[in-house]
């Protein structure tokens, strides 16, 4: 089955629908899978605004690019992040958020921002877009891929001026992107277990007594999700 030629252009990741079809064929399911969800450009975010959604799609596509194998877009990582920010994670339900906050404290003392993850994304995306407008005359999502790469690199190296309470933005984005690539598909990402298939992780099978003694032998069977979906 010839694979589509993936380009890391803006159009490349808007072609997410075709990529998903290729994924399904690659996984060779033994029974019909659940129906394909809507393509990302038709997805109605629960948390992100339309502009933020464009940013997140562009950003995650850089962090885990598409290519001969699925990347963040095919794995629907932006959907994962949207759903996470709309949930208790986004509102920092588990964290101690009482003040006073010393946002510019020693990073080794951990998260001290008064902002929740959802707020970090909202204000952080706005700040990065503002900086892109200022330095490149367009918001992040509208920049050329090469320029986007430069911006992301700058962000990762603390070279985009951000107030202290937003300094966790890149780490959060990268962490959430990897989570969205590898978490169980029930959370909206790791579509058709693309992340697990990419590295050969068996997912939720969790049963290997007969394999402990097989040293230096590749494990051949594809992954299974908590829902029972087979890869």
């Amino acid at each position: 089955m010839p694979l589509p030629d993936w380009k890391t252009t803006r159009r490349g990741f808007l072609g997410g629908g075709a990529g998903a079809a290729a994924l399904t064929a690659m996984a060779v399911p033994l029974h019909a899978q659940s129906p394909e969800p809507e393509p990302l450009e038709n997805y109605a975010p629960e948390y992100f605004t339309a502009e933020e959604w464009q940013f997140v799609m562009s950003a995650t596509a850089l962090l885990i690019p598409s290519g001969p194998t699925p990347g963040a877009i095919e794995a629907r990582v932006p959907v994962f992040i949207d759903l996470q920010l709309a949930s208790g994670f986004g509102s920092a339900d588990d964290w101690y958020m009482a003040g006073p906050h010393i946002a510019d404290a020693d990073p080794l003392l951990g998260w001290q921002s008064p902002l929740t993850p959802a707020e970090i994304y909202r204000e952080g995306i706005a700040a990065v877009n503002a900086w892109c407008e200022q330095t490149h005359e367009a918001p992040f999502a509208d920049l050329l891929p090469q320029t986007q790469q430069e911006v992301m690199t700058a962000l990762s190296e603390d070279e985009v001026p951000l107030p202290p309470e937003l300094r966790g933005l890149f780490d959060l984005l990268l962490q959430n992107t990897k989570e969205g690539f590898f978490a169980d598909p029930k959370y909206g990402g790791n579509h058709r277990m693309a992340g697990w298939t990419h590295i050969g992780f068996p997912g939720a099978r969790a049963s290997f007594l007969e394999w402990v003694d097989k040293h230096n032998v590749p494990y051949p069977l594809g992954p299974v999700a908590i829902s029972g979906e087979r890869g």
Binding site: F89, D93, D94, W95, Y96, M97, E179, F182, A183, D184, Y187, G203, A204, R205, A206, V224, I226
Partner: peptide, 21 residues
């Protein structure tokens, strides 16, 4: 099984641990 095999919920979001809040 298999619901506990959820790396995000338990391994990353610390589902069984004390909530700092």
């Amino acid at each position: 099984y298999p619901d506990v095999i959820d790396e995000l919920k338990y391994g990353v979001r610390f589902g069984f641990m004390q909530k700092p809040r």
